[in-house]
Simulated scan of single mutants.
Amino acid sequence: MEPTIGLSAENLEKAAHALNSVLADEYLLYTKTRNAHWNVEGPDFHSKHLFFESQYQQLDEILDSVAERIRTLGHYAPASLKSFLDLTRLSEQLHEKNTGDGFIHELLKDHESLIINLRGKIDYTADKLHDMGTSDYMTGLAETHEKMAWMLRAHLK
C-alpha cells in the first residue's frame, strides 16, 4: 500500500532514489571504518582501535535509519553489496597507510564528500520534491557527519 502523506508517487520515488545513494555511501563508509578498526597499526593502536569502533557503531545506526526512511516513503532499500557498489559515489579503495592518521585522512575525505552530497540533496528534496520530511532528515544526517568529521579532524592537530 502506497503512503498517503501529501507527496505524489513520483516525488516519493525520487526521494527514495536520492536516499538509495545516501545509503550506499553510508554502507561504504561503514565498511571502510570497520576496516580501520580491524587493521589499524602503530603506537596509537589501542586508542584508534576504540575510536574507529565508536564511529562504525554510529554508522551502523545511520544505516538502519536511512533504510527505514526509504521504507517510510513506500520503497524498498537496496540491500546487496552489488547494489551498494553500483549506487555509491565513494571508492572502497584505500589510498593511505594502515596507521591511525592514514585511516583518519581517508575517512575524513569520505565524510566531507558525504556532507557535500547531502547538502545538495537537502535542497533538492525540499525545493523540487516538496518533501520537507526527507529534507529535514538529511539535514540531521549532515549534522551527524559534520560532528564525526570534526572528531576525525581533531586527531590530526
Results as ranks from 00 to 15, higher is better:
141 L>R: 12
118 L>T: 02
46 H>I: 08
8 S>I: 15
97 K>E: 15
49 H>Q: 11
59 L>F: 04
67 A>M: 09
105 H>I: 06
68 E>H: 06
152 L>Q: 06
70 I>V: 03
107 L>R: 00
91 S>I: 02
142 A>M: 12
71 R>P: 01
94 L>E: 06
30 Y>K: 06
143 E>A: 11
6 G>Q: 10
107 L>S: 01
142 A>F: 02
107 L>Q: 01
17 H>I: 07
111 H>D: 04
125 T>M: 11
101 D>H: 13
110 D>W: 01
31 T>Y: 13
80 S>H: 07
84 F>S: 08
129 L>G: 11
147 K>V: 00
21 S>R: 14
140 G>M: 03
46 H>R: 15
149 A>I: 09
133 G>C: 00
105 H>E: 07
31 T>L: 14
105 H>Q: 13
94 L>Q: 08
132 M>H: 13
147 K>A: 03
71 R>T: 15
85 L>N: 12
155 H>Y: 09
55 Q>L: 15
115 I>R: 02
114 L>M: 12
30 Y>W: 14
34 R>M: 08
98 N>V: 00
136 D>M: 05
75 H>E: 12
98 N>M: 02
45 F>S: 03
81 L>C: 11
109 K>C: 07
60 D>M: 12
116 I>K: 06
100 G>T: 02
153 R>F: 12
74 G>L: 05
96 E>T: 13
69 R>C: 05
2 E>D: 09
8 S>C: 13
